[in-house]
Design a protein around this nucleic acid. Sequence first.
DNA 1: CGCACTGCGTACGCTTCCGTACGCAGATAG
DNA 2: CTATCTGCGTACGGAAGCGTACGCAGTGCG
Lengths: 247, 247
Amino acid sequence: MARTGSCFTMSKRFHLSMSEHRNRLLAALSADDLVLLEPHLQHVMLARRDVLEVPNKTVENVYFIEAGVASVVAVNGRGERIEVGLIGCEGMSGVTIVMGNHRSPHSTYMQISGEGLRIGAAQLRKALSKSATLQTLLLHFAQVFMTQAAQTAVANGRAKLEQRLARWVLMAHDRSADNNVSLTHEFLSVMLGVRRASVTVALDGFKKRGLIEARRGGITVLDRKAIEKIAGSFYGVPEAEFRRLIG
Amino acid sequence: MARTGSCFTMSKRFHLSMSEHRNRLLAALSADDLVLLEPHLQHVMLARRDVLEVPNKTVENVYFIEAGVASVVAVNGRGERIEVGLIGCEGMSGVTIVMGNHRSPHSTYMQISGEGLRIGAAQLRKALSKSATLQTLLLHFAQVFMTQAAQTAVANGRAKLEQRLARWVLMAHDRSADNNVSLTHEFLSVMLGVRRASVTVALDGFKKRGLIEARRGGITVLDRKAIEKIAGSFYGVPEAEFRRLIG
DNA sequence: CGCACTGCGTACGCTTCCGTACGCAGATAG
DNA sequence: CTATCTGCGTACGGAAGCGTACGCAGTGCG
């Protein structure tokens, strides 16, 4: 079950050129649209807990993720937090900008460290206004992201903890270059909106069945198929939308 | 606590003219943008259970709701359903069209009967491509809707049944012209993803505290403030976004 | 007017997950 | 090398909500 190549790769083909972007959105852009963006893209390292977006504050920069995972977390007045979406090399932060807005009530921060390409919100806005095809592509991603949020609502409302955990592991795995996913139970419990201890117990169940291997601060996926079986139909809808609209 | 005027009215001002649209989106449009849409708008009655959108089928028509409430329901492969959003006179169905797409994995149908203005998806698409301001407004609504979905995820993950129920009643009340909300416990249980009996018990709790009045097939809101207190911070985020971006 | 149907109230045992809490082990800093 | 901190395993009583199920009361239809 070894995995090679970059995350969220939809085919086994090796990369076509050195210059092909690791970020799936940028990779899907036409040459013309790339010319619009590239002068403003700046490569940055993204460490765990780095904040990409603060709730209800104007978004300064948008990040096309190349590696690692960011969480979009909904906060509600009284600090109750829960993850509504997860972004990796297949996407971007700052979807609100694509939708002609300047801020959102959500918080976005790095969950698994990585790197990305940063662009100023103003620059992106300008590029969007110049190219309809760029706008279309990024709007399609916004649609995918919205689907993810909606499916999170379904999972939170109807799935058992074990299924939700499986779903999360799969989504993180999709966005990972190898089979390792780095995260603490504590962090994961916040994402899922459950107790830390519940995560420990559930992951232990996976471990005992040989689906994962666990170490301090992370897990290794051993049997993805089996995890998919546990997640059942709570996993896969936004992924299908991504393939249909972008990949 | 009698309520007058149309739903989701943000101020006490009476309507400025006979021709002002009851739908808040249409009401917010410039005269020029209205001219683009109005020739294609057709008034239709919308009965409970009328289907506005079928999952993964091309959207033929988009509806600007004038009265009643439509539910956007996420379905996941194995038929597990749950509501992710609720649309009334403040919005429209077919957000996916605004985002440059033709279909979505969600199901949309009338929950509380009403009426609306229908426009063909193709016509709307054409109008969108002609007017940036129209596109901006409708994208803003898409953002509001996405916020609603995200907050539904939070509520489903963190709130107790009573709080979720309060949230739903408030959102339905917002979209209602008076204090009556017509729905069966059965329907509501599907929306919230819980047992029908749980809804009965929870509503009974509200009734005993004098917050609502119940009859077969519907309730009357008596003490909205108290219901808001129960919902706490699980209610209000998308509503604030609406006011900021549109209202 | 009677019958079937839909909607509502209630009840009981059961599962899942929570709140809390304690101890241990690997990591990090002095 | 010791102290401290962070992360993980485990445990127990309790709450919320589930599955199931039964009965009754409005409502509509023949």
